[in-house]
């Protein structure tokens, strides 16, 4: 059982990079050379950054208007560590939300839900049903039409769009709440950190069997990653 959980951890860690490359986060592959380049001269680049800003830590914690976000990459093979830090958070936030896109499509904005046009079901052979409650249209009934032309009962689709802003049928993306300002004021002064750990290289067998110590630490730090995940 122990070896099973260890190899599970190894697979998790080594598949992490592949998940970055494959999966839905195509854009992230653009960052890969950047991330890998950092890991190769990790310690030096990290320390350079630190030494150039010796008062960084204290400076930030005392001035809440200037918060910063960090991604900390840990290479379990070399024990190297990379810190990617950002002060201007807009582009960085999008990277984070891409990384943490486990939550699915965020809710649609209130305005966009209210703006959905109401359509009356005419008599002319408009048979069909609401894909959410599976009730058939009543002739003369009023339904909401999404920009993708898919129709649902108003109550049904509003309830869904407040949870996930995508069309239930075709996944057409509704505009999200423009919550940048709100989020910023909420997050002001809060530091967010993400710890990531991965092994470089394609040989899973090696990392699984010859580096058990590292893979255990990889597991624990990948748990940290979840703990520190921002609520994007």
């Amino acid at each position: 059982m122990a070896s099973e959980s260890e190899s599970a951890a190894a697979a998790q860690a080594s598949s992490f990079m592949e998940n970055l490359m494959n999966s839905r986060n195509r854009d992230l592959s653009l960052f890969l050379p950047f991330i890998l380049a950092f890991t190769n001269n990790s310690i030096s680049s990290a320390s350079v950054q630190d030494s150039s800003n010796p008062d960084q830590e204290t400076g930030e914690s005392t001035t809440p208007s200037e918060f910063s976000d960090r991604i900390i990459l840990v290479n379990p093979l070399t024990q190297g560590m990379v810190v990617i830090e950002s002060r201007s958070s807009s582009s960085f936030d999008s990277l984070l939300s891409e990384l943490m896109s486990k939550e699915g499509q965020p809710p649609a904005s209130k305005a966009s839900i209210e703006a959905l046009p109401s359509v009356e079901i005419c008599e002319e052979g408009q048979k069909g049903e609401c894909a959410i409650c599976l009730d058939e249209w009543e002739i003369g009934g009023v339904v909401k039409e999404m920009p993708c032309k898919h129709r649902f009962h108003g109550d049904c689709v509003e309830k869904w769009l407040k949870i996930h802003g995508s069309c239930p049928i075709c996944r057409y993306k509704m505009p999200e709440e423009d919550g940048d300002l709100n989020n910023k004021s909420e997050n002001r002064g809060r530091r967010r950190e993400i710890w990531m750990s991965f092994s470089v290289g394609n040989d899973r067998r090696r990392s699984a069997e010859n580096h058990n110590n590292q893979t255990v630490s990889a597991n624990s730090s990948s748990e940290n990653e979840h703990d520190h995940a921002p609520e994007a």
Binding site: A8, A11, N19
Partner: peptide, 15 residues
């Protein structure tokens, strides 16, 4: 197999 639930099975599938 690249997004496994059961790592042991996934590794056997690949190797």
């Amino acid at each position: 197999p690249d997004d496994p639930q059961d790592a042991v099975v996934a590794q056997q599938y690949l190797r």
